[in-house]
Deep mutational scan, measured.
Amino acid sequence: DSWHDTVDGIELELHGADEELLKLAKELLKRGVSEEEVRRIIEELLK
């Protein structure tokens, strides 16, 4: 799946992010949310 590559990229960027955020990112990508949107959501949550 192409979203796996996206998640791997996000995981590299979010090496400090907790497991729950990564699960959320994967779930959003699986549901068709764009990579940009996922990054934006996670950045908001990390604030």
Rank of each mutant, 00 (worst) to 15 (best):
Leu21Arg: 01
Glu13His: 04
Val38Cys: 02
Asp18Val: 09
Leu46Pro: 01
Lys47Glu: 08
Ala25Pro: 00
Glu37Trp: 03
Arg39Cys: 02
Leu21Gln: 02
Trp3Leu: 10
Ile41Pro: 00
Leu24Gly: 00
Glu35Gly: 10
Lys26Trp: 12
Val33Leu: 12
Val33Lys: 05
Asp5Gln: 12
Leu46Met: 12
Gly9Glu: 13
Leu12Arg: 03
Val7Trp: 15
Ser34Asn: 07
Glu43Thr: 12
Arg40Thr: 06
Ser34Arg: 05
Leu28Thr: 00
Glu44Phe: 06
Ala17Glu: 07
Lys47Val: 10
Glu43Ala: 10
Gly16Gln: 04
Lys30Cys: 06
Arg31Lys: 14
Ala25Trp: 04
Glu43Gly: 11
Lys23Pro: 01
Glu43His: 11
Leu28Phe: 02
Glu11Pro: 09
Asp8Thr: 14
Val38Asp: 00
Leu24Tyr: 12
Glu36Lys: 08
Ala17Ser: 07
Leu28Cys: 01
Val7Cys: 04
Ile42Val: 07
Asp1Gly: 13
Leu14Lys: 03
Val7Ile: 13
Glu20Ala: 14
Arg39Gln: 06
Val7Pro: 12
His4Gly: 14
Glu27Pro: 00
Leu28Tyr: 02
Leu28Gly: 00
Asp1Glu: 14
Leu46His: 04
Ser2Gly: 12
Lys23Thr: 06
Asp18Pro: 14
Arg31Phe: 10
Leu21Ile: 13
Leu12Asp: 05
Val33Arg: 03
Glu11Leu: 15
Glu35Tyr: 15
Arg39Phe: 08
Glu44Asp: 13
Glu13Phe: 03
Arg40Val: 05
Glu27Gly: 02
Glu36Asp: 10
Leu12Trp: 10
Glu36Met: 09
His15Met: 14
Lys30Phe: 10
Ala17Phe: 07
Leu12Met: 12
Leu29Trp: 02
Arg31Asp: 11
Asp1Val: 14
His15Gln: 13
Leu28Glu: 00
Leu22Ala: 06
Glu35Met: 15
Ser2Met: 14
Asp5Lys: 02
Lys30Asp: 15
His15Asn: 13
Lys30Thr: 07
His4Met: 11
Ser34Glu: 07
Lys30Gly: 13
Leu45Asn: 01
His15Gly: 12
